[in-house]
Design a protein around this nucleic acid. Structure first.
Lengths: 250, 250
DNA sequence: GTTTCAATCTCGTTG
DNA sequence: CAACGAGGTTGAAAC
Protein backbone atom coordinates (compact mmCIF):
# COMPACT_ATOMS: atom_id res chain seq x y z
CA UNK A 1 0.00 0.00 0.00
CA UNK A 2 1.28 3.45 -0.92
CA UNK A 3 1.76 5.56 2.18
CA UNK A 4 3.61 8.85 2.52
CA UNK A 5 4.68 10.30 5.84
CA UNK A 6 6.39 13.49 6.84
CA UNK A 7 7.43 14.36 10.40
CA UNK A 8 7.57 18.08 11.26
CA UNK A 9 7.54 19.37 7.67
CA UNK A 10 7.68 23.07 6.90
CA UNK A 11 4.32 24.63 6.19
CA UNK A 12 5.31 24.90 2.55
CA UNK A 13 6.17 21.19 2.33
CA UNK A 14 3.00 20.30 4.18
CA UNK A 15 0.85 22.38 1.85
CA UNK A 16 2.26 20.52 -1.14
CA UNK A 17 1.58 17.14 0.45
CA UNK A 18 -1.95 18.20 1.35
CA UNK A 19 -2.52 19.24 -2.26
CA UNK A 20 -1.20 15.89 -3.46
CA UNK A 21 -3.46 14.02 -1.09
CA UNK A 22 -6.53 16.01 -2.13
CA UNK A 23 -5.91 15.54 -5.84
CA UNK A 24 -5.36 11.80 -5.36
CA UNK A 25 -8.45 11.51 -3.19
CA UNK A 26 -6.28 9.85 -0.57
CA UNK A 27 -6.95 9.23 3.10
CA UNK A 28 -5.02 11.98 4.88
CA UNK A 29 -4.01 12.08 8.52
CA UNK A 30 -2.70 15.25 10.17
CA UNK A 31 -1.47 16.06 13.66
CA UNK A 32 -1.36 19.83 13.84
CA UNK A 33 -1.51 22.91 16.00
CA UNK A 34 -4.60 24.64 14.67
CA UNK A 35 -7.73 26.65 15.25
CA UNK A 36 -11.11 25.83 13.74
CA UNK A 37 -14.08 27.88 12.58
CA UNK A 38 -17.39 26.44 11.48
CA UNK A 39 -20.26 28.32 9.92
CA UNK A 40 -23.43 26.74 8.61
CA UNK A 41 -26.10 24.71 10.37
CA UNK A 42 -24.65 26.21 13.53
CA UNK A 43 -21.63 28.38 14.25
CA UNK A 44 -18.51 27.50 16.21
CA UNK A 45 -15.04 28.72 17.01
CA UNK A 46 -12.24 26.68 18.53
CA UNK A 47 -8.98 28.35 19.58
CA UNK A 48 -5.48 27.05 18.91
CA UNK A 49 -4.56 23.61 20.20
CA UNK A 50 -3.16 20.23 19.14
CA UNK A 51 -5.69 18.31 17.03
CA UNK A 52 -5.77 15.17 14.93
CA UNK A 53 -7.43 15.56 11.55
CA UNK A 54 -8.72 12.92 9.14
CA UNK A 55 -9.65 13.85 5.58
CA UNK A 56 -11.00 10.97 3.51
CA UNK A 57 -11.13 10.56 -0.23
CA UNK A 58 -14.91 10.86 -0.17
CA UNK A 59 -14.69 14.36 1.31
CA UNK A 60 -15.26 13.46 4.95
CA UNK A 61 -13.42 15.99 7.14
CA UNK A 62 -12.99 15.03 10.78
CA UNK A 63 -11.24 16.96 13.57
CA UNK A 64 -10.53 15.22 16.86
CA UNK A 65 -9.33 16.60 20.15
CA UNK A 66 -7.39 14.35 22.51
CA UNK A 67 -10.48 13.20 24.34
CA UNK A 68 -14.04 12.11 23.59
CA UNK A 69 -15.42 9.70 21.05
CA UNK A 70 -16.99 12.33 18.83
CA UNK A 71 -15.04 14.77 16.69
CA UNK A 72 -15.11 18.39 17.84
CA UNK A 73 -15.73 19.60 14.28
CA UNK A 74 -16.49 17.81 11.05
CA UNK A 75 -17.96 17.88 7.56
CA UNK A 76 -19.79 14.96 5.93
CA UNK A 77 -18.80 13.08 2.76
CA UNK A 78 -18.85 15.03 -0.53
CA UNK A 79 -17.43 18.12 1.09
CA UNK A 80 -15.17 20.08 -1.27
CA UNK A 81 -11.72 20.34 0.26
CA UNK A 82 -9.28 23.13 -0.62
CA UNK A 83 -5.97 24.28 0.80
CA UNK A 84 -3.89 27.44 0.63
CA UNK A 85 -0.80 28.84 2.28
CA UNK A 86 -1.08 32.44 3.46
CA UNK A 87 1.56 34.25 5.53
CA UNK A 88 3.05 30.88 6.49
CA UNK A 89 -0.29 29.70 7.85
CA UNK A 90 -2.04 26.74 6.17
CA UNK A 91 -5.78 27.05 5.66
CA UNK A 92 -7.81 23.97 4.78
CA UNK A 93 -11.38 24.81 3.80
CA UNK A 94 -14.22 22.31 3.60
CA UNK A 95 -17.23 23.72 1.77
CA UNK A 96 -20.62 22.24 1.12
CA UNK A 97 -23.81 23.55 -0.45
CA UNK A 98 -27.16 22.34 0.74
CA UNK A 99 -26.87 22.86 3.49
CA UNK A 100 -24.50 25.76 2.88
CA UNK A 101 -21.75 25.37 5.38
CA UNK A 102 -18.03 25.69 5.67
CA UNK A 103 -15.30 24.44 7.95
CA UNK A 104 -12.04 26.36 8.16
CA UNK A 105 -8.96 24.76 9.64
CA UNK A 106 -6.15 27.25 10.31
CA UNK A 107 -2.87 25.43 10.84
CA UNK A 108 0.03 27.13 12.56
CA UNK A 109 2.29 24.11 12.67
CA UNK A 110 2.26 20.52 11.29
CA UNK A 111 3.66 17.75 13.50
CA UNK A 112 2.69 14.84 11.30
CA UNK A 113 1.21 14.47 7.86
CA UNK A 114 0.51 11.19 6.15
CA UNK A 115 -1.67 10.02 3.31
CA UNK A 116 -2.44 6.66 1.82
CA UNK A 117 -4.57 5.10 -0.87
CA UNK A 118 -6.34 1.80 -0.78
CA UNK A 119 -9.95 0.84 -1.13
CA UNK A 120 -11.76 -1.10 1.54
CA UNK A 121 -14.80 -2.75 0.04
CA UNK A 122 -15.64 -5.11 2.87
CA UNK A 123 -19.13 -4.70 4.24
CA UNK A 124 -19.77 -5.11 7.91
CA UNK A 125 -21.99 -7.91 9.09
CA UNK A 126 -24.10 -7.05 12.03
CA UNK A 127 -27.12 -8.10 14.00
CA UNK A 128 -29.20 -7.00 16.91
CA UNK A 129 -31.53 -4.51 15.28
CA UNK A 130 -35.23 -3.91 15.18
CA UNK A 131 -35.33 -5.25 11.61
CA UNK A 132 -33.81 -8.55 12.77
CA UNK A 133 -36.41 -8.69 15.49
CA UNK A 134 -39.22 -8.10 13.00
CA UNK A 135 -37.93 -10.88 10.75
CA UNK A 136 -37.57 -13.24 13.70
CA UNK A 137 -41.18 -12.67 14.75
CA UNK A 138 -42.50 -13.03 11.19
CA UNK A 139 -40.63 -16.36 10.99
CA UNK A 140 -41.63 -17.54 14.47
CA UNK A 141 -44.95 -15.93 15.44
CA UNK A 142 -45.25 -18.24 18.45
CA UNK A 143 -42.52 -16.13 20.08
CA UNK A 144 -45.36 -13.67 20.74
CA UNK A 145 -47.84 -16.29 21.84
CA UNK A 146 -49.38 -19.58 20.73
CA UNK A 147 -51.82 -19.01 17.90
CA UNK A 148 -50.55 -15.54 16.94
CA UNK A 149 -50.67 -14.97 13.19
CA UNK A 150 -49.03 -11.89 11.65
CA UNK A 151 -51.18 -10.46 8.87
CA UNK A 152 -48.92 -7.67 7.68
CA UNK A 153 -45.73 -5.90 8.55
CA UNK A 154 -45.36 -2.14 8.25
CA UNK A 155 -49.11 -1.59 8.03
CA UNK A 156 -49.77 2.06 7.29
CA UNK A 157 -51.91 4.22 9.58
CA UNK A 158 -52.37 8.00 9.79
CA UNK A 159 -49.99 7.83 12.74
CA UNK A 160 -47.25 6.01 10.82
CA UNK A 161 -46.35 2.40 10.12
CA UNK A 162 -47.28 -0.34 12.55
CA UNK A 163 -44.30 -2.67 12.97
CA UNK A 164 -46.39 -5.86 12.86
CA UNK A 165 -50.16 -6.26 12.70
CA UNK A 166 -51.74 -9.66 13.37
CA UNK A 167 -54.51 -11.66 14.97
CA UNK A 168 -54.49 -13.78 18.09
CA UNK A 169 -55.90 -17.25 18.71
CA UNK A 170 -59.39 -15.80 19.26
CA UNK A 171 -59.23 -13.69 16.10
CA UNK A 172 -58.67 -10.40 17.93
CA UNK A 173 -56.60 -7.73 16.21
CA UNK A 174 -53.11 -7.35 17.70
CA UNK A 175 -50.77 -4.39 17.19
CA UNK A 176 -47.08 -5.04 17.88
CA UNK A 177 -44.59 -2.24 18.55
CA UNK A 178 -40.98 -3.41 18.46
CA UNK A 179 -37.96 -1.89 20.17
CA UNK A 180 -34.51 -3.42 20.00
CA UNK A 181 -33.55 -1.81 23.32
CA UNK A 182 -35.15 -0.89 26.61
CA UNK A 183 -38.46 0.77 25.78
CA UNK A 184 -39.50 4.08 27.34
CA UNK A 185 -42.69 6.12 27.51
CA UNK A 186 -42.38 7.27 23.91
CA UNK A 187 -42.62 3.68 22.67
CA UNK A 188 -45.80 3.17 24.72
CA UNK A 189 -47.32 6.42 23.44
CA UNK A 190 -46.58 5.38 19.89
CA UNK A 191 -48.23 2.00 20.47
CA UNK A 192 -51.23 3.73 22.01
CA UNK A 193 -51.59 5.99 18.98
CA UNK A 194 -51.55 2.96 16.68
CA UNK A 195 -54.19 1.19 18.76
CA UNK A 196 -56.30 4.37 18.72
CA UNK A 197 -56.35 4.18 14.92
CA UNK A 198 -58.71 1.24 15.33
CA UNK A 199 -60.83 2.92 18.01
CA UNK A 200 -63.86 2.90 15.70
CA UNK A 201 -63.74 -0.91 15.84
CA UNK A 202 -66.43 -2.63 17.85
CA UNK A 203 -63.88 -5.09 19.21
CA UNK A 204 -61.08 -4.29 21.61
CA UNK A 205 -57.70 -4.13 19.89
CA UNK A 206 -54.70 -5.55 21.74
CA UNK A 207 -51.50 -3.51 21.89
CA UNK A 208 -48.29 -5.34 22.65
CA UNK A 209 -44.90 -3.71 23.19
CA UNK A 210 -42.07 -6.12 22.32
CA UNK A 211 -38.64 -5.21 23.68
CA UNK A 212 -35.80 -6.64 25.79
CA UNK A 213 -36.98 -4.56 28.76
CA UNK A 214 -39.07 -1.55 29.69
CA UNK A 215 -38.84 1.46 31.99
CA UNK A 216 -40.98 1.58 35.12
CA UNK A 217 -43.01 4.54 33.91
CA UNK A 218 -43.64 2.89 30.56
CA UNK A 219 -44.94 -0.20 32.35
CA UNK A 220 -47.41 1.91 34.33
CA UNK A 221 -48.84 3.56 31.22
CA UNK A 222 -49.11 0.16 29.53
CA UNK A 223 -51.14 -1.16 32.45
CA UNK A 224 -53.30 1.94 32.54
CA UNK A 225 -54.42 1.33 28.96
CA UNK A 226 -54.63 -2.46 29.30
CA UNK A 227 -51.76 -3.00 26.93
CA UNK A 228 -49.13 -5.71 27.25
CA UNK A 229 -45.39 -6.18 27.18
CA UNK A 230 -43.46 -9.16 25.88
CA UNK A 231 -39.79 -9.43 26.75
CA UNK A 232 -37.84 -10.35 23.63
CA UNK A 233 -34.34 -9.46 22.46
CA UNK A 234 -33.24 -9.08 18.86
CA UNK A 235 -31.32 -12.06 17.48
CA UNK A 236 -27.58 -11.70 17.17
CA UNK A 237 -26.73 -14.15 14.41
CA UNK A 238 -24.71 -12.35 11.81
CA UNK A 239 -25.67 -11.72 8.25
CA UNK A 240 -24.28 -9.40 5.60
CA UNK A 241 -26.09 -6.10 5.89
CA UNK A 242 -25.43 -4.67 2.44
CA UNK A 243 -25.77 -6.76 -0.70
CA UNK A 244 -23.59 -4.50 -2.81
CA UNK A 245 -20.25 -5.93 -1.72
CA UNK A 246 -17.72 -5.71 -4.54
CA UNK A 247 -15.61 -8.67 -3.62
CA UNK A 248 -13.88 -8.89 -7.00
CA UNK A 249 -11.52 -6.23 -5.76
CA UNK A 250 -9.95 -8.91 -3.55
CA UNK B 1 5.38 18.04 21.29
CA UNK B 2 6.56 14.48 21.70
CA UNK B 3 5.58 12.40 18.70
CA UNK B 4 6.79 8.93 17.72
CA UNK B 5 6.30 7.48 14.27
CA UNK B 6 7.15 4.16 12.72
CA UNK B 7 6.59 3.27 9.07
CA UNK B 8 6.00 -0.44 8.30
CA UNK B 9 7.29 -1.78 11.62
CA UNK B 10 7.36 -5.50 12.33
CA UNK B 11 4.43 -6.73 14.37
CA UNK B 12 6.78 -7.20 17.31
CA UNK B 13 8.01 -3.60 17.10
CA UNK B 14 4.46 -2.35 16.65
CA UNK B 15 3.23 -4.26 19.70
CA UNK B 16 5.91 -2.61 21.82
CA UNK B 17 4.97 0.84 20.58
CA UNK B 18 1.29 0.16 21.20
CA UNK B 19 2.11 -0.90 24.74
CA UNK B 20 4.14 2.27 25.25
CA UNK B 21 1.31 4.42 23.95
CA UNK B 22 -1.27 2.72 26.17
CA UNK B 23 0.83 3.05 29.31
CA UNK B 24 1.51 6.73 28.57
CA UNK B 25 -2.17 7.36 27.81
CA UNK B 26 -1.06 8.85 24.51
CA UNK B 27 -3.10 9.61 21.40
CA UNK B 28 -2.32 6.73 19.05
CA UNK B 29 -2.86 6.60 15.30
CA UNK B 30 -2.64 3.36 13.35
CA UNK B 31 -3.01 2.51 9.67
CA UNK B 32 -3.33 -1.25 9.53
CA UNK B 33 -4.63 -4.25 7.66
CA UNK B 34 -7.07 -5.69 10.16
CA UNK B 35 -10.35 -7.39 10.91
CA UNK B 36 -12.76 -6.27 13.61
CA UNK B 37 -15.18 -8.08 15.90
CA UNK B 38 -17.65 -6.39 18.20
CA UNK B 39 -19.83 -8.05 20.81
CA UNK B 40 -22.10 -6.22 23.20
CA UNK B 41 -25.16 -4.07 22.53
CA UNK B 42 -25.19 -5.71 19.13
CA UNK B 43 -22.80 -8.04 17.31
CA UNK B 44 -20.66 -7.29 14.30
CA UNK B 45 -17.87 -8.73 12.20
CA UNK B 46 -15.77 -6.90 9.67
CA UNK B 47 -13.39 -8.88 7.44
CA UNK B 48 -9.78 -7.92 6.65
CA UNK B 49 -9.16 -4.56 5.04
CA UNK B 50 -7.15 -1.36 5.39
CA UNK B 51 -8.42 0.76 8.30
CA UNK B 52 -7.35 3.85 10.21
CA UNK B 53 -7.55 3.53 13.97
CA UNK B 54 -7.49 6.23 16.65
CA UNK B 55 -6.99 5.31 20.29
CA UNK B 56 -7.11 8.27 22.68
CA UNK B 57 -5.71 8.60 26.16
CA UNK B 58 -9.21 8.70 27.61
CA UNK B 59 -9.95 5.21 26.24
CA UNK B 60 -11.82 6.25 23.10
CA UNK B 61 -11.28 3.61 20.42
CA UNK B 62 -12.26 4.58 16.89
CA UNK B 63 -11.97 2.56 13.68
CA UNK B 64 -12.48 4.29 10.33
CA UNK B 65 -12.87 2.86 6.86
CA UNK B 66 -11.86 4.98 3.87
CA UNK B 67 -15.34 6.43 3.46
CA UNK B 68 -18.12 7.89 5.58
CA UNK B 69 -17.99 10.35 8.40
CA UNK B 70 -18.84 7.84 11.08
CA UNK B 71 -16.44 5.16 12.30
CA UNK B 72 -17.35 1.59 11.34
CA UNK B 73 -16.62 0.40 14.88
CA UNK B 74 -15.82 2.19 18.10
CA UNK B 75 -15.75 2.18 21.89
CA UNK B 76 -16.48 5.25 24.05
CA UNK B 77 -14.12 6.94 26.53
CA UNK B 78 -13.09 4.93 29.60
CA UNK B 79 -12.76 1.74 27.60
CA UNK B 80 -9.97 -0.49 28.91
CA UNK B 81 -7.45 -1.05 26.14
CA UNK B 82 -5.15 -4.07 26.02
CA UNK B 83 -2.78 -5.51 23.42
CA UNK B 84 -1.12 -8.85 22.81
CA UNK B 85 0.92 -10.51 20.08
CA UNK B 86 -0.17 -14.06 19.19
CA UNK B 87 1.25 -16.06 16.27
CA UNK B 88 2.55 -12.83 14.73
CA UNK B 89 -0.94 -11.28 14.82
CA UNK B 90 -1.55 -8.21 16.98
CA UNK B 91 -4.80 -8.16 18.95
CA UNK B 92 -6.02 -4.93 20.52
CA UNK B 93 -8.96 -5.44 22.84
CA UNK B 94 -11.24 -2.69 24.11
CA UNK B 95 -13.43 -3.82 26.99
CA UNK B 96 -16.15 -2.02 28.88
CA UNK B 97 -18.64 -3.03 31.59
CA UNK B 98 -22.08 -1.49 31.72
CA UNK B 99 -22.90 -2.00 29.08
CA UNK B 100 -20.75 -5.11 28.84
CA UNK B 101 -19.14 -4.96 25.45
CA UNK B 102 -15.89 -5.65 23.75
CA UNK B 103 -14.17 -4.62 20.56
CA UNK B 104 -11.45 -6.84 19.12
CA UNK B 105 -9.07 -5.50 16.51
CA UNK B 106 -7.01 -8.24 14.83
CA UNK B 107 -4.05 -6.72 13.00
CA UNK B 108 -2.26 -8.66 10.31
CA UNK B 109 0.06 -5.87 9.23
CA UNK B 110 0.92 -2.35 10.43
CA UNK B 111 1.58 0.33 7.79
CA UNK B 112 1.86 3.27 10.14
CA UNK B 113 1.92 3.71 13.88
CA UNK B 114 2.29 6.99 15.68
CA UNK B 115 1.57 8.32 19.10
CA UNK B 116 1.78 11.72 20.71
CA UNK B 117 1.07 13.43 24.00
CA UNK B 118 -0.27 16.90 24.57
CA UNK B 119 -3.38 18.15 26.28
CA UNK B 120 -5.91 20.32 24.53
CA UNK B 121 -8.07 22.13 27.03
CA UNK B 122 -9.70 24.68 24.76
CA UNK B 123 -13.49 24.64 24.86
CA UNK B 124 -15.50 25.19 21.76
CA UNK B 125 -17.89 28.11 21.48
CA UNK B 126 -21.04 27.41 19.56
CA UNK B 127 -24.55 28.58 18.89
CA UNK B 128 -27.59 27.77 16.80
CA UNK B 129 -29.60 25.45 19.00
CA UNK B 130 -33.21 25.14 20.04
CA UNK B 131 -32.25 26.37 23.49
CA UNK B 132 -30.80 29.57 22.00
CA UNK B 133 -34.02 29.98 20.05
CA UNK B 134 -36.11 29.59 23.20
CA UNK B 135 -34.04 32.20 25.00
CA UNK B 136 -34.28 34.58 22.05
CA UNK B 137 -38.07 34.35 22.02
CA UNK B 138 -38.36 34.76 25.79
CA UNK B 139 -36.20 37.90 25.48
CA UNK B 140 -37.98 39.25 22.38
CA UNK B 141 -41.57 37.95 22.33
CA UNK B 142 -42.46 40.34 19.50
CA UNK B 143 -40.46 38.01 17.21
CA UNK B 144 -43.57 35.83 17.34
CA UNK B 145 -46.03 38.71 16.91
CA UNK B 146 -46.89 42.05 18.36
CA UNK B 147 -48.52 41.66 21.75
CA UNK B 148 -47.37 38.09 22.36
CA UNK B 149 -46.53 37.44 26.00
CA UNK B 150 -44.82 34.21 27.07
CA UNK B 151 -46.25 32.91 30.33
CA UNK B 152 -44.02 29.89 30.87
CA UNK B 153 -41.37 27.84 29.20
CA UNK B 154 -41.29 24.05 29.40
CA UNK B 155 -44.88 23.85 30.62
CA UNK B 156 -45.67 20.27 31.50
CA UNK B 157 -48.57 18.38 29.92
CA UNK B 158 -49.47 14.68 29.86
CA UNK B 159 -47.96 14.69 26.34
CA UNK B 160 -44.65 16.18 27.43
CA UNK B 161 -43.21 19.66 27.81
CA UNK B 162 -44.48 22.57 25.76
CA UNK B 163 -41.50 24.64 24.58
CA UNK B 164 -43.16 28.00 25.24
CA UNK B 165 -46.71 28.75 26.38
CA UNK B 166 -48.11 32.28 26.18
CA UNK B 167 -50.99 34.56 25.35
CA UNK B 168 -51.62 36.73 22.33
CA UNK B 169 -52.82 40.33 22.08
CA UNK B 170 -56.43 39.19 22.50
CA UNK B 171 -55.62 37.03 25.52
CA UNK B 172 -55.90 33.74 23.61
CA UNK B 173 -53.70 30.87 24.74
CA UNK B 174 -50.79 30.21 22.36
CA UNK B 175 -48.69 27.03 22.24
CA UNK B 176 -45.27 27.35 20.61
CA UNK B 177 -43.34 24.35 19.33
CA UNK B 178 -39.72 25.17 18.44
CA UNK B 179 -37.44 23.40 15.98
CA UNK B 180 -33.95 24.64 15.19
CA UNK B 181 -34.07 22.99 11.75
CA UNK B 182 -36.62 22.26 9.02
CA UNK B 183 -39.70 20.90 10.74
CA UNK B 184 -41.46 17.74 9.53
CA UNK B 185 -44.75 16.01 10.24
CA UNK B 186 -43.57 14.77 13.63
CA UNK B 187 -43.12 18.33 14.86
CA UNK B 188 -46.66 19.17 13.74
CA UNK B 189 -48.09 16.05 15.38
CA UNK B 190 -46.32 16.97 18.59
CA UNK B 191 -47.76 20.48 18.47
CA UNK B 192 -51.21 19.08 17.78
CA UNK B 193 -50.96 16.82 20.81
CA UNK B 194 -50.01 19.76 23.00
CA UNK B 195 -52.92 21.81 21.70
CA UNK B 196 -55.24 18.85 22.30
CA UNK B 197 -54.25 18.97 25.96
CA UNK B 198 -56.37 22.12 26.20
CA UNK B 199 -59.27 20.72 24.16
CA UNK B 200 -61.56 20.96 27.19
CA UNK B 201 -61.14 24.75 27.00
CA UNK B 202 -64.08 26.72 25.74
CA UNK B 203 -61.76 28.95 23.76
CA UNK B 204 -59.78 27.95 20.71
CA UNK B 205 -56.10 27.46 21.50
CA UNK B 206 -53.57 28.63 18.92
CA UNK B 207 -50.75 26.29 17.94
CA UNK B 208 -47.70 27.85 16.33
CA UNK B 209 -44.75 25.94 14.94
CA UNK B 210 -41.59 28.05 15.00
CA UNK B 211 -38.75 26.85 12.77
CA UNK B 212 -36.49 28.07 9.96
CA UNK B 213 -38.62 26.13 7.44
CA UNK B 214 -41.14 23.35 7.14
CA UNK B 215 -41.84 20.35 4.88
CA UNK B 216 -44.72 20.48 2.43
CA UNK B 217 -46.65 17.72 4.17
CA UNK B 218 -46.17 19.37 7.55
CA UNK B 219 -47.62 22.60 6.17
CA UNK B 220 -50.72 20.77 4.94
CA UNK B 221 -51.39 19.21 8.32
CA UNK B 222 -50.87 22.60 10.00
CA UNK B 223 -53.49 24.16 7.71
CA UNK B 224 -55.86 21.26 8.23
CA UNK B 225 -55.89 21.88 11.96
CA UNK B 226 -55.83 25.70 11.68
CA UNK B 227 -52.40 25.92 13.19
CA UNK B 228 -49.71 28.36 12.15
CA UNK B 229 -46.06 28.50 11.21
CA UNK B 230 -43.58 31.25 11.93
CA UNK B 231 -40.28 31.22 10.10
CA UNK B 232 -37.49 31.90 12.57
CA UNK B 233 -33.90 30.67 12.78
CA UNK B 234 -31.92 30.16 15.95
CA UNK B 235 -29.46 32.93 16.76
CA UNK B 236 -25.82 32.33 15.96
CA UNK B 237 -23.95 34.60 18.34
CA UNK B 238 -21.21 32.65 19.98
CA UNK B 239 -20.92 31.89 23.62
CA UNK B 240 -18.75 29.46 25.54
CA UNK B 241 -20.69 26.23 25.88
CA UNK B 242 -18.84 24.60 28.76
CA UNK B 243 -17.82 26.56 31.82
CA UNK B 244 -15.16 24.09 32.91
CA UNK B 245 -12.35 25.44 30.76
CA UNK B 246 -8.99 24.76 32.36
CA UNK B 247 -7.03 27.56 30.79
CA UNK B 248 -4.25 27.51 33.36
CA UNK B 249 -2.59 24.81 31.27
CA UNK B 250 -1.77 27.57 28.82
C1' DG C 1 -27.36 6.13 38.85
C1' DT C 2 -31.54 6.26 35.18
C1' DT C 3 -34.49 8.71 31.83
C1' DT C 4 -35.27 12.06 28.39
C1' DC C 5 -34.30 14.74 24.38
C1' DA C 6 -31.53 17.54 21.03
C1' DA C 7 -27.98 16.95 17.42
C1' DT C 8 -23.86 20.90 12.34
C1' DC C 9 -26.87 14.16 14.49
C1' DT C 10 -25.31 10.27 10.34
C1' DC C 11 -26.81 6.93 7.19
C1' DG C 12 -29.73 4.13 4.71
C1' DT C 13 -34.14 3.48 2.10
C1' DT C 14 -38.01 4.99 -0.30
C1' DG C 15 -41.00 7.84 -3.12
C1' DC D 1 -33.88 15.34 -4.64
C1' DA D 2 -36.53 15.46 -0.17
C1' DA D 3 -38.56 12.93 3.60
C1' DC D 4 -38.58 9.44 7.13
C1' DG D 5 -36.80 6.40 10.63
C1' DA D 6 -33.19 3.53 12.97
C1' DG D 7 -28.89 3.79 15.45
C1' DG D 8 -24.00 -0.49 19.29
C1' DT D 9 -26.80 6.37 17.94
C1' DT D 10 -23.80 10.15 21.31
C1' DG D 11 -24.00 13.59 24.76
C1' DA D 12 -25.95 16.59 28.11
C1' DA D 13 -29.37 17.90 31.29
C1' DA D 14 -32.94 16.76 34.45
C1' DC D 15 -34.76 13.82 37.91
Amino acid sequence: MLLKIEHNPTNLEATELINEAISKRAFMILVVCCKVNYEGRATSKLGFGERTVLIKGDGSFIIHQDRNLEPINWQPPRTKIGVKLEDDVIKIMGKRRKPKEQLELVIRNVHLISYHLGSDTKDIELAGYEEDMRQMIMDNPELIEKGFRPTSKEYQTPQGFIDILGKDDAGKLVVLELKSRKAGVNAVKQLLRYVDCFSDNKEFVRGILVSPSITEEAKEILNEYQMEHISLSPPKELKVKSSTTLDYFF
